[in-house]
Computed example of a mutant assay.
Amino acid sequence: MAIPYMENAIRSVHKSLDQIIKTAEGLSEDIIRKKPSEEEWSIMQILCHVLEVGPYWMGEIEKIKENPQIKWGRGLNDEARLEAVNTTDSQSVSEVLAGLRSLKTELSGRLEKLDEDTLQIEAESKNPNFGTKPVSFIVDHLIVEHIAKHYGQINRNLSKFHINQ
């Protein structure tokens, strides 16, 4: 059984993923793939990023647990991050949505294994803006809040297309 802190994190991630999935399921393929502008991601790119980002940050947590001396994180030009958002034309919406449903189970299983001692481990980020942070920071900001913010990004896209959810 997960500690209460992790139960809350899992519940929040599930809520955000459920909202993302429900919203995307109700959209046409055209809207999902349409970019609001050249600089902004399409909803499909957002979905693919969410599918990649949760496992990425869980992997970073697991590396920190093994060796707190490593630096964690990545920049905006990380190859896996860019590949997730730049290869969306070759992916089907239904497969990505199925992946997001599976992601709920994957993240739950990995998050519930984190204990109080792990959450308190501190490690230095590659990003100088973060500095040294505990694992709980990664859970709170780079998994829970990050996924929730992408639900908000999807809704901003829809508002630009004059679609209300």
Rank of each mutant, 00 (worst) to 15 (best):
W72G: 00
P68Q: 05
W57M: 12
G59Y: 13
K63I: 00
I64E: 00
A80V: 12
G73A: 06
P55F: 00
E83Y: 13
I70S: 02
T87P: 08
W57F: 15
M58C: 07
E62H: 03
G59H: 12
K65M: 01
T87W: 08
R81I: 03
S92L: 08
E62R: 05
E60C: 04
P55H: 05
E62Y: 09
P68K: 05
K63A: 00
D78L: 05
A80E: 11
L82Y: 09
K65N: 07
W57T: 03
E83L: 10
Q69D: 14
D89H: 08
K71V: 00
M58R: 05
W57V: 01
N67P: 04
N77S: 09
T87E: 06
I70Y: 04
D78K: 14
L82V: 07
A80L: 14
P68Y: 11
S92A: 09
A80R: 12
E60Q: 15
W57Y: 15
G75W: 06
A84D: 00
E79Y: 13
R74V: 01
K65T: 06
A80C: 04
E62T: 03
Q91T: 00
G75I: 08
E60M: 14
E66Y: 02
S92P: 08
N67Y: 03
N86T: 11
V85N: 02
D89I: 00
N77E: 15
G73S: 04
M58D: 06
S90Y: 02
G75N: 11
N77F: 04
P68F: 13
G73K: 02
E60L: 04
N86H: 13
R74L: 00
K63L: 00
S92C: 02
S90I: 12
S92Q: 10
K65I: 13
P68S: 07
I64K: 07
V85Q: 10
P68C: 07
R74C: 03
I70N: 02
E79F: 15
R74G: 01
D89S: 10
L82K: 14
M58K: 05
S92V: 09
Q69L: 04
I64P: 03
D78P: 06
W72Y: 14
E79I: 14
M58G: 03
E83W: 12
G75E: 05
T88G: 06
I61S: 06
V85R: 13
K71A: 00
N67S: 14
G73T: 07
N77D: 14
G59P: 05
L76G: 12
T88A: 00
R74W: 11
T87Q: 14
I70M: 11
E62F: 07
E60A: 10
Q91N: 07
L82Q: 15
W57E: 03
M58T: 09
N67K: 11
I61R: 04
L76Q: 13
T88I: 14
I64N: 07
P55T: 06
K71N: 09
Q91R: 15
P55A: 10
A84L: 12
I61F: 09
T87L: 09
T88H: 04
T87V: 10
I61D: 07
